[in-house]
């Protein structure tokens, strides 16, 4: 990763606004029936913050920063596994009509 400079910040800001706009359109296209799974998925992906936690936990030896990083990894992992799994459970329940529920004339 490069050093922090105003240029890097402006690039970050550009990315941020473009991502907000993408998010806006993508989320409006989500069908209301799937709003709960949407929360499950967003919950899981927001835990991509684990990337920062891994960097902090990365160096060898033990110091304050590393302990914070490891705690961060644990917390984010709970969310990643939990978020994706609960979303999977929800989505696997959404079924089309089957033989059991006969098509009505």
């Amino acid at each position: 990763m490069e050093a922090h400079s105003s240029e890097v910040f402006v690039i970050g800001l550009t990315v941020f606004f473009l991502a907000c706009i993408i998010g806006y359109y993508v989320v409006w296209s989500v069908t209301p029936a799937l709003h709960s799974p949407l929360m499950g998925v967003t919950n899981a992906i927001s835990s991509v913050i684990i990337v920062g936690a891994i960097l902090a936990a990365g160096p060898q030896g033990f110091d304050t920063s590393k302990i914070f990083g490891l705690i961060g990894v644990v917390l984010a992992s709970v969310n990643i596994f939990g978020g994706f799994l609960v979303t999977y459970r929800m989505l696997s329940m959404f079924k089309k009509k089957t033989k059991k529920t006969k098509e009505k004339e």
Binding site: G12, V15, F16, A19, C20, I22, G23, Y24, V26, V27, L38, M39, T42, N43, I45, S46, V48, I49, V51, G52
Partner: peptide, 11 residues
């Protein structure tokens, strides 16, 4: 992180 955060925030 910025992109994902923005997606979740917007959602």
């Amino acid at each position: 992180l910025i992109i994902t955060g923005a997606l979740v925030g917007a959602s």
